[in-house]
Amino acid sequence: MRVTTAKPVIRLRDVHRRYPGRPPVRALDGVSLSVAPGELVAIVGPSGSGKSTLLNILGTLDRADAGEVRIDGRDVATLSDKQLSALRAHRIGFVFQQFFLSPGVTALDNVADGLLYTGLSLRERRRRAARTLARVGLADRTHHRPNELSGGQRQRAAVARALVGRPSFLLADEPTGALDSASGAAVLKLLHELHDGGTTVIVITHDHGVAAELPRQVHILDGRIESDETLEPAQGGSYGTGGDAGPEVPPSRRSRPLAEWSEGGDAV
Protein backbone atom coordinates (compact mmCIF):
# COMPACT_ATOMS: atom_id res chain seq x y z
CA MET A 1 0.00 0.00 0.00
CA ARG A 2 2.61 2.55 -0.98
CA VAL A 3 0.02 4.97 -2.29
CA THR A 4 -1.44 6.22 0.92
CA THR A 5 1.59 6.00 3.18
CA ALA A 6 3.73 8.70 1.56
CA LYS A 7 2.71 12.27 1.09
CA PRO A 8 1.37 12.80 -2.45
CA VAL A 9 3.33 14.77 -5.00
CA ILE A 10 0.13 15.54 -6.87
CA ARG A 11 -3.34 16.14 -5.52
CA LEU A 12 -6.24 17.33 -7.60
CA ARG A 13 -9.66 17.83 -6.10
CA ASP A 14 -12.70 18.42 -8.25
CA VAL A 15 -10.70 20.25 -10.91
CA HIS A 16 -12.60 21.95 -13.73
CA ARG A 17 -11.23 23.50 -16.87
CA ARG A 18 -13.39 24.71 -19.67
CA TYR A 19 -12.47 26.39 -22.92
CA PRO A 20 -14.60 29.22 -24.21
CA GLY A 21 -16.73 28.45 -27.26
CA ARG A 22 -20.31 27.72 -28.24
CA PRO A 23 -21.02 25.68 -26.32
CA PRO A 24 -18.00 25.91 -24.00
CA VAL A 25 -15.84 22.79 -23.97
CA ARG A 26 -15.68 21.13 -20.59
CA ALA A 27 -12.20 19.73 -21.06
CA LEU A 28 -11.94 18.75 -17.38
CA ASP A 29 -15.13 18.24 -15.52
CA GLY A 30 -14.45 17.48 -11.86
CA VAL A 31 -11.20 15.56 -11.83
CA SER A 32 -9.79 14.32 -8.54
CA LEU A 33 -6.48 12.51 -8.53
CA SER A 34 -3.69 11.78 -6.13
CA VAL A 35 -0.22 10.53 -7.01
CA ALA A 36 2.21 9.38 -4.36
CA PRO A 37 5.98 9.56 -4.64
CA GLY A 38 7.47 6.67 -6.56
CA GLU A 39 4.35 5.83 -8.55
CA LEU A 40 4.26 5.06 -12.25
CA VAL A 41 0.87 6.15 -13.51
CA ALA A 42 -0.74 5.99 -16.92
CA ILE A 43 -3.47 8.49 -17.75
CA VAL A 44 -5.34 6.88 -20.59
CA GLY A 45 -8.15 8.08 -22.76
CA PRO A 46 -9.19 8.60 -26.34
CA SER A 47 -8.34 11.70 -28.30
CA GLY A 48 -10.21 14.75 -27.04
CA SER A 49 -10.85 13.25 -23.61
CA GLY A 50 -8.90 15.98 -21.82
CA LYS A 51 -5.50 14.33 -21.32
CA SER A 52 -3.40 17.22 -22.58
CA THR A 53 -5.49 19.66 -20.59
CA LEU A 54 -4.83 17.57 -17.50
CA LEU A 55 -1.13 17.41 -18.29
CA ASN A 56 -0.97 21.19 -18.61
CA ILE A 57 -2.60 21.57 -15.23
CA LEU A 58 -0.41 18.93 -13.58
CA GLY A 59 2.61 20.67 -15.09
CA THR A 60 1.39 24.13 -13.92
CA LEU A 61 1.49 25.35 -17.51
CA ASP A 62 -2.21 26.11 -17.16
CA ARG A 63 -4.50 26.90 -14.25
CA ALA A 64 -7.76 25.24 -13.28
CA ASP A 65 -10.97 27.27 -13.43
CA ALA A 66 -12.22 25.60 -10.27
CA GLY A 67 -11.04 22.98 -7.83
CA GLU A 68 -7.84 22.56 -5.95
CA VAL A 69 -4.45 21.69 -7.44
CA ARG A 70 -1.60 20.83 -5.11
CA ILE A 71 1.80 20.11 -6.55
CA ASP A 72 4.48 19.01 -4.13
CA GLY A 73 2.26 20.15 -1.31
CA ARG A 74 1.75 23.65 -2.69
CA ASP A 75 -1.60 25.06 -3.61
CA VAL A 76 -0.97 26.20 -7.16
CA ALA A 77 -3.73 28.81 -7.03
CA THR A 78 -1.77 30.76 -4.42
CA LEU A 79 1.45 30.84 -6.43
CA SER A 80 2.45 33.65 -8.78
CA ASP A 81 3.53 33.03 -12.34
CA LYS A 82 7.13 33.45 -11.21
CA GLN A 83 6.69 30.91 -8.43
CA LEU A 84 5.10 28.47 -10.84
CA SER A 85 8.12 28.89 -13.10
CA ALA A 86 10.34 28.08 -10.14
CA LEU A 87 8.22 25.02 -9.43
CA ARG A 88 8.70 23.83 -13.01
CA ALA A 89 12.41 24.59 -12.94
CA HIS A 90 13.03 22.58 -9.81
CA ARG A 91 10.20 20.09 -9.34
CA ILE A 92 8.67 19.02 -12.65
CA GLY A 93 10.26 17.25 -15.59
CA PHE A 94 8.47 17.32 -18.94
CA VAL A 95 8.73 14.81 -21.77
CA PHE A 96 6.90 15.65 -24.99
CA GLN A 97 5.74 13.57 -27.90
CA GLN A 98 7.78 15.74 -30.31
CA PHE A 99 10.91 15.67 -28.09
CA PHE A 100 11.52 19.44 -28.57
CA LEU A 101 15.30 19.08 -28.73
CA SER A 102 17.33 22.01 -30.10
CA PRO A 103 18.59 20.90 -33.49
CA GLY A 104 21.97 22.64 -33.53
CA VAL A 105 23.01 21.53 -30.09
CA THR A 106 24.62 18.32 -28.80
CA ALA A 107 22.73 15.81 -26.70
CA LEU A 108 24.81 16.91 -23.72
CA ASP A 109 23.80 20.57 -24.06
CA ASN A 110 20.19 19.68 -24.74
CA VAL A 111 20.12 17.75 -21.50
CA ALA A 112 22.05 20.50 -19.70
CA ASP A 113 19.30 22.91 -20.78
CA GLY A 114 17.06 21.04 -18.36
CA LEU A 115 18.99 22.92 -15.66
CA LEU A 116 19.23 26.24 -17.52
CA TYR A 117 16.74 28.01 -15.30
CA THR A 118 18.11 26.73 -12.02
CA GLY A 119 21.00 29.17 -12.03
CA LEU A 120 23.71 26.48 -11.98
CA SER A 121 26.90 27.20 -13.89
CA LEU A 122 27.29 25.77 -17.39
CA ARG A 123 30.09 23.55 -16.14
CA GLU A 124 27.94 22.05 -13.43
CA ARG A 125 24.96 21.71 -15.79
CA ARG A 126 27.10 19.78 -18.23
CA ARG A 127 28.57 17.62 -15.51
CA ARG A 128 25.12 16.58 -14.33
CA ALA A 129 23.90 16.21 -17.90
CA ALA A 130 26.69 13.77 -18.71
CA ARG A 131 25.78 11.70 -15.66
CA THR A 132 22.11 11.69 -16.58
CA LEU A 133 22.83 10.75 -20.20
CA ALA A 134 24.73 7.74 -18.90
CA ARG A 135 21.74 6.89 -16.78
CA VAL A 136 19.44 6.73 -19.83
CA GLY A 137 22.02 4.70 -21.76
CA LEU A 138 23.31 7.46 -24.02
CA ALA A 139 26.81 7.79 -22.58
CA ASP A 140 28.28 7.18 -26.02
CA ARG A 141 26.03 9.75 -27.73
CA THR A 142 26.96 12.74 -25.60
CA HIS A 143 28.34 14.83 -28.43
CA HIS A 144 25.86 13.83 -31.11
CA ARG A 145 23.32 16.29 -32.39
CA PRO A 146 19.64 15.31 -32.45
CA ASN A 147 19.74 14.64 -36.20
CA GLU A 148 22.48 12.10 -35.56
CA LEU A 149 20.28 10.19 -33.10
CA SER A 150 17.49 7.69 -33.73
CA GLY A 151 13.96 8.57 -32.65
CA GLY A 152 14.25 6.37 -29.56
CA GLN A 153 17.59 7.94 -28.65
CA ARG A 154 16.11 11.38 -29.07
CA GLN A 155 13.31 10.58 -26.71
CA ARG A 156 15.78 9.12 -24.23
CA ALA A 157 17.74 12.37 -24.43
CA ALA A 158 14.51 14.25 -23.81
CA VAL A 159 13.83 12.03 -20.80
CA ALA A 160 17.33 12.78 -19.55
CA ARG A 161 16.63 16.49 -19.91
CA ALA A 162 13.47 16.08 -17.83
CA LEU A 163 15.36 14.02 -15.28
CA VAL A 164 18.54 16.03 -14.89
CA GLY A 165 17.06 18.45 -12.36
CA ARG A 166 15.96 15.58 -10.06
CA PRO A 167 12.32 16.64 -10.26
CA SER A 168 9.61 15.39 -7.91
CA PHE A 169 7.93 13.82 -10.87
CA LEU A 170 8.15 13.30 -14.61
CA LEU A 171 5.25 14.23 -16.86
CA ALA A 172 5.38 12.42 -20.18
CA ASP A 173 2.86 13.38 -22.88
CA GLU A 174 2.52 10.51 -25.40
CA PRO A 175 6.23 9.73 -25.01
CA THR A 176 6.01 6.86 -27.48
CA GLY A 177 3.59 8.56 -29.87
CA ALA A 178 6.22 9.51 -32.42
CA LEU A 179 8.21 6.29 -32.18
CA ASP A 180 8.11 2.89 -33.86
CA SER A 181 7.14 0.03 -31.57
CA ALA A 182 10.69 -1.12 -30.80
CA SER A 183 11.87 2.38 -29.88
CA GLY A 184 8.66 2.94 -27.96
CA ALA A 185 9.26 -0.22 -25.99
CA ALA A 186 12.79 0.90 -25.18
CA VAL A 187 11.53 4.24 -23.90
CA LEU A 188 8.89 2.49 -21.78
CA LYS A 189 11.56 0.19 -20.43
CA LEU A 190 13.56 3.24 -19.46
CA LEU A 191 10.56 4.71 -17.64
CA HIS A 192 10.15 1.43 -15.80
CA GLU A 193 13.79 1.48 -14.78
CA LEU A 194 13.44 5.03 -13.51
CA HIS A 195 10.36 3.98 -11.62
CA ASP A 196 12.28 1.10 -10.09
CA GLY A 197 14.88 3.65 -9.03
CA GLY A 198 12.20 5.61 -7.19
CA THR A 199 11.27 8.28 -9.74
CA THR A 200 7.63 9.30 -9.93
CA VAL A 201 6.41 9.11 -13.52
CA ILE A 202 3.07 10.10 -15.05
CA VAL A 203 2.58 8.93 -18.61
CA ILE A 204 -0.22 10.37 -20.69
CA THR A 205 -1.29 8.18 -23.56
CA HIS A 206 -4.20 7.22 -25.77
CA ASP A 207 -2.60 3.82 -26.32
CA HIS A 208 -4.13 1.08 -24.17
CA GLY A 209 -1.21 -1.16 -25.03
CA VAL A 210 1.18 1.33 -23.48
CA ALA A 211 -1.07 1.86 -20.49
CA ALA A 212 -1.39 -1.86 -19.88
CA GLU A 213 2.34 -2.03 -19.21
CA LEU A 214 2.12 0.42 -16.31
CA PRO A 215 1.15 -0.44 -12.75
CA ARG A 216 -1.57 2.18 -12.34
CA GLN A 217 -4.04 3.24 -14.98
CA VAL A 218 -6.28 6.26 -14.73
CA HIS A 219 -8.92 6.19 -17.45
CA ILE A 220 -10.28 9.54 -18.53
CA LEU A 221 -13.23 10.24 -20.79
CA ASP A 222 -14.91 13.54 -21.61
CA GLY A 223 -13.02 15.30 -18.87
CA ARG A 224 -13.97 12.83 -16.14
CA ILE A 225 -12.04 10.03 -14.55
CA GLU A 226 -13.81 6.81 -15.46
CA SER A 227 -11.68 4.41 -13.48
CA ASP A 228 -8.46 4.32 -11.53
CA GLU A 229 -6.90 0.89 -11.27
CA THR A 230 -3.71 -0.29 -9.69
CA LEU A 231 -2.06 -3.44 -10.83
CA GLU A 232 -0.78 -5.32 -7.79
CA PRO A 233 2.86 -5.99 -8.36
CA ALA A 234 3.84 -9.53 -9.28
CA GLN A 235 6.63 -11.09 -7.22
CA GLY A 236 9.41 -9.36 -9.12
CA GLY A 237 7.77 -5.99 -8.82
CA SER A 238 8.28 -5.35 -12.51
CA TYR A 239 5.62 -4.93 -15.12
CA GLY A 240 5.48 -5.89 -18.71
CA THR A 241 9.18 -5.53 -19.29
CA GLY A 242 9.95 -9.20 -19.17
CA GLY A 243 7.98 -12.23 -20.22
CA ASP A 244 8.47 -14.02 -16.90
CA ALA A 245 5.01 -13.26 -15.55
CA GLY A 246 3.25 -16.26 -17.03
CA PRO A 247 -0.29 -16.13 -18.34
CA GLU A 248 -1.51 -18.35 -15.54
CA VAL A 249 -0.60 -15.68 -13.01
CA PRO A 250 -2.88 -12.86 -14.14
CA PRO A 251 -2.10 -9.56 -12.47
CA SER A 252 -4.74 -8.71 -10.00
CA ARG A 253 -6.43 -5.36 -10.21
CA ARG A 254 -7.64 -3.19 -7.45
CA SER A 255 -10.01 -0.36 -7.81
CA ARG A 256 -9.03 2.76 -6.01
CA PRO A 257 -11.46 5.21 -4.46
CA LEU A 258 -11.54 8.37 -6.53
CA ALA A 259 -10.98 10.80 -3.70
CA GLU A 260 -8.47 10.14 -0.96
CA TRP A 261 -8.81 13.40 0.81
CA SER A 262 -10.02 12.16 4.16
CA GLU A 263 -6.92 13.36 5.96
CA GLY A 264 -7.31 16.91 4.72
CA GLY A 265 -4.81 19.38 3.29
CA ASP A 266 -1.53 19.36 5.12
CA ALA A 267 0.82 21.32 2.98
CA VAL A 268 2.16 24.86 3.19
Binding site: D81, S85, F94, Q98, D113, L116, Y117
Partner: peptide, 15 residues
Amino acid sequence: SEVGLRRALGATRAH
Protein backbone atom coordinates in the same frame (compact mmCIF):
# COMPACT_ATOMS: atom_id res chain seq x y z
CA SER B 1 7.20 25.89 -29.30
CA GLU B 2 10.67 26.88 -28.15
CA VAL B 3 9.10 29.46 -25.88
CA GLY B 4 6.70 26.83 -24.56
CA LEU B 5 9.54 24.41 -23.94
CA ARG B 6 11.53 27.06 -22.08
CA ARG B 7 8.53 27.91 -19.93
CA ALA B 8 8.18 24.17 -19.18
CA LEU B 9 11.86 24.06 -18.24
CA GLY B 10 11.18 26.82 -15.73
CA ALA B 11 11.74 30.09 -17.58
CA THR B 12 9.79 33.03 -16.21
CA ARG B 13 8.15 35.57 -18.48
CA ALA B 14 11.02 37.91 -17.70
CA HIS B 15 13.54 35.31 -18.84
